[in-house]
């Protein structure tokens, strides 16, 4: 419990910054919705000049940008991207920070087992994500709702927003796993950005090529906004895939960390 509280104290400010950034992004993007929807014909004719593969990559072939939900879906990709960077950063740093700041010799000689430490640290990351998502979903739904024209599929909106934490969990698990596999991580952000953007590029390719196998490689494809708007539900096979990957990576993290030598100073 003390480790958990300590972790929260150390990470609270960063969480608040990132959450603010996410909400600001929604605010700013949605601010552009009324002018764009007014001249949607012009906007779409510009977009239609783009080659089809690029339009697919941007995810606009399946979305109706004149609809508030369609427009939100279009910008939500970037919310996912930023949320994922935050999640991956948290996942990579939460265990490795003790080694990086050389405090492992302090914490690990305390009368606690390694799995207790991992429990507390993962719980702190989950708590941060929980708080972030509650704030984000509430405010984002309020903002989007303010721009609705006549009706709004509230269920679809919540489902879109709720996909954020599921993609984030994927990156937390991946970050945790990488942090115990890679020896001596000096800086977190370069690895984080590299990995998240790699998955993002795979998603662009996936949307452009429409290859069903490619979609399983990147979590950005698991919660397709166009499909959520159409069906008001998630794709079950992707949901399971995400769950399995998160579970496997987390279990591996525990196993590897348990047997790991802590490098000396």
């Amino acid at each position: 419990m003390n480790i958990f509280a300590q972790e929260l104290k150390m990470s609270a400010i960063s969480m608040i910054y990132w959450t603010t950034a996410l909400i600001l992004l929604v605010f700013v993007f949605m601010f552009m919705y009324p002018p764009i929807s007014k001249d949607i014909a012009v906007f779409e004719s510009i977009l239609n000049n783009f080659p089809i593969s690029l339009r697919r990559a941007l995810g606009i072939t399946t979305l109706d940008l004149s609809e508030v939900l369609g427009f939100y879906g279009f910008i939500f990709v970037y919310i996912l991207l930023i949320g994922s960077v935050y999640a991956m950063k948290s996942g990579i740093s939460v265990l490795s920070e003790e080694i990086r700041s050389k405090t492992a010799d302090f914490l690990l000689v305390k009368p606690v087992s390694r799995s207790t430490i991992v429990n507390a640290k993962i719980l702190s990351v989950l708590t941060n994500l929980g708080i972030q998502n509650i704030l984000f979903i509430t405010l984002s739904c309020l903002i989007v709702n303010a721009y609705k024209q006549d009706s709004l599929d509230a269920a679809a909106l919540v489902l879109i927003n709720a996909s954020l934490i599921q993609v984030q969990l994927f990156f937390v698990a991946l970050g945790l796993f990488l942090s115990v596999v890679i020896k001596k991580i000096k800086t977190v952000l370069p690895i984080t950005l590299g990995v998240v953007f790699a998955f993002f590029v795979i998603q662009l390719l996936n949307q452009s090529l429409d290859d069903p196998k490619l979609a399983y490689i990147t979590p950005f494809a698991y919660f397709d906004v166009g499909q959520i708007i159409q069906n008001s539900s998630y794709d079950f096979s992707f949901l399971v895939t995400n769950f399995v990957i998160i579970t496997v990576l987390t279990v591996l993290t525990y196993l590897i960390y348990q047997r790991q030598d802590i490098p000396s100073l």
Binding site: M10, S101, T103
Partner: peptide, 12 residues
């Protein structure tokens, strides 16, 4: 056990 290493590092 009480442990004092040669180099000490704590949360800054």
């Amino acid at each position: 056990i009480g442990y004092l290493p040669s180099e000490v590092f704590y949360y800054d």
